[in-house]
Nucleic acid binder design. Structure first.
Lengths: 141, 141
DNA sequence: CTCTCTGCAAAATTTTTGCACTGCT
DNA sequence: AGCAGTGCAAAAATTTTGCAGAGAG
């Protein structure tokens, strides 16, 4: 979670221009735990930026993820979700309502090395997804 | 990995008809470790089934995954990959060439319970993805 | 013989791209 | 002022759907 000033300096440092749209996309992501997709971001930003386009949303999340300022989540729905929390954590998705929640850091610190030793890969990243039924949906049934 | 006979009986038992196309899609998946996507499956099956269509491929993998006979992989590319190995294992993808390899069972058996206790979810499934550079690509650089 | 499945084409969805105009530096 | 960025619309890519004919039970 960066402040707009820090984000601006990171963008500039990497040769990207600082625009209101880019700051707004990041702020929108930093201000939620709902792991929105491009469409939700677009609709959230439209009131403040009536001219906002999907192209800008997609180009911005591409840059932000390339700079490791956000994470892209592929939970297996049609669309990708985005998360401004890039700290080590995993995700769990409700197979009933589709919501995605965070999971605090698991005791998996050594797994990367385990994988590297097992496969010969140089491991640079990991994504753990759990699926199940969220508390709210469990109550309904 | 099921034989065609076993697969046929599982399909029948669940009210699905046994067709050559369905057997062929499964056999194609069971016979590779390359984790193909729909397009690759389609092209592999065309020689034997010239009338094969994407619709049939997609409808078949939908059924097979619903019956837990295959796993759907969402590694973050445009398309989904499919895996006939439904035993407990994880995947690692090369960020350079895109290939996906298997990882033997990790010491993560207790993680599901950890997540359930942490989030209140009833955990029913999990998918772990690792990303990195495969041995072949490491050699090139 | 019935009813599901296949396969074609069209549609729906998500994401990417080309290009003129805007606006950051 | 120069050049990257925005936003529109069109295109691309993947997946889904409707429906007529084919084939499994």
């Amino acid at each position: 979670m960066l402040t707009s000033q820090k984000l601006a300096s990171v963008l500039r440092k990497n040769g990207f221009k600082v625009t209101p749209q880019r700051l707004a996309v990041y702020e929108s992501l930093a201000g939620t735990k709902a792991h929105p997709n491009a469409e939700i971001l677009y609709n959230q930003l439209r009131p403040s930026y009536p001219s906002m386009s999907f192209a800008t949303v997609y180009k911005t999340v591409e840059i932000l993820s390339h700079l490791n300022l956000i994470t892209v989540l592929n939970t297996g729905e049609g669309s990708s979700r985005y998360d401004a929390d890039v700290s080590m954590h995993s995700h769990v998705q409700c197979t009933n309502c589709g919501r995605v929640d965070d999971i605090g850091p698991l005791s998996v610190a050594v797994l990367g090395q385990e994988v590297a030793a097992d496969t010969g890969y140089e491991v640079t990243g990991q994504q753990f997804y759990f699926y199940g039924v969220c508390p709210a949906c469990r109550k309904q049934n």
